[in-house]
């Protein structure tokens, strides 16, 4: 019957109605476009050649979560130039936000140094004690961490930090940076630098 055909047509038409304007993906893309000039352009610095960067450093990691509150470490860099490629070991002791006393366990990673000075260090899963967590003081943070940079000079090294925080919240670290300035003795007064200088 004709009316039954019309009825079924109406079923399909009504089912197609309501395709509204809710577009979460589009709204995210618009935000990324609008905010692009405000986003970090991570400077990694040019790798100009390897140097023996062995020594003690004040290493600062500026997370993308809160770059103005870098997490600080007393870092000992050891470069073995007797092997090819050179081997690099970094041992980082977390420092308390207040007073920069040593807290928690030393974090260690080993890698190789390319001919242009480039290196990658994978620290695996680490724990930053609450006293050293500058982002949320007092709360332990668990994260995976890698550092990538260059050994251009024995006074300063810098690059990117990557990985992900898994506790107290799940937060990707992509876009984070680190810097390490050589110190001779007193770590408590040195000014931390947590990113490579922009050109």
């Amino acid at each position: 019957m004709q009316w039954r055909a019309a009825f079924l047509t109406a079923v399909l038409a009504t089912t197609a109605l309501g395709a509204g304007c809710v577009d979460p993906n589009g709204k995210l893309d618009e935000f990324l476009e609008r905010s692009e000039p405000f986003r970090a352009q991570v400077a990694t610095g040019a790798c100009e050649g390897r140097v023996d960067a062995s020594g003690d450093y004040l290493l600062a990691i500026a997370t993308v979560v809160l770059p103005t509150a870098p997490v600080l470490f007393d870092a000992t860099v050891t470069v073995d130039t007797t092997v090819d490629p050179w081997a690099i070991t970094v041992a980082m002791q977390p420092l308390a936000v207040d007073g920069r006393a040593n807290v928690g366990d030393v974090l260690t990673a080993t890698g190789t140094v390319d001919a242009d000075g480039r290196f990658d260090l994978d620290f695996g899963e680490i724990t930053i004690p609450g006293a050293a967590n500058a982002i949320l003081v007092g709360t332990d943070a668990v994260a995976t961490l890698t550092l990538a940079g260059c050994t251009n000079t024995a006074e300063f090294t810098c690059g990117t930090a990557d990985g992900a925080i898994s506790s107290p919240a799940s937060i990707p670290l992509a876009g984070s940076t680190y810097g390490a300035i050589a110190v001779d003795g007193d770590l408590t007064t040195a000014d931390p630098v947590a990113l490579c200088p922009t050109e």
């Binding site: 990324l32 692009e36 352009q41 993308v64 979560v65 770059p67 990707p172 992509a174 876009g175």
Partner: peptide, 16 residues
């Protein structure tokens, strides 16, 4: 879930 926190570079934005 796609998270964009702080000044995360757009190129680093990936779904979790």
């Amino acid at each position: 879930t796609t998270l964009v926190f702080g000044a995360t570079p757009s190129a680093a934005v990936e779904p979790t």
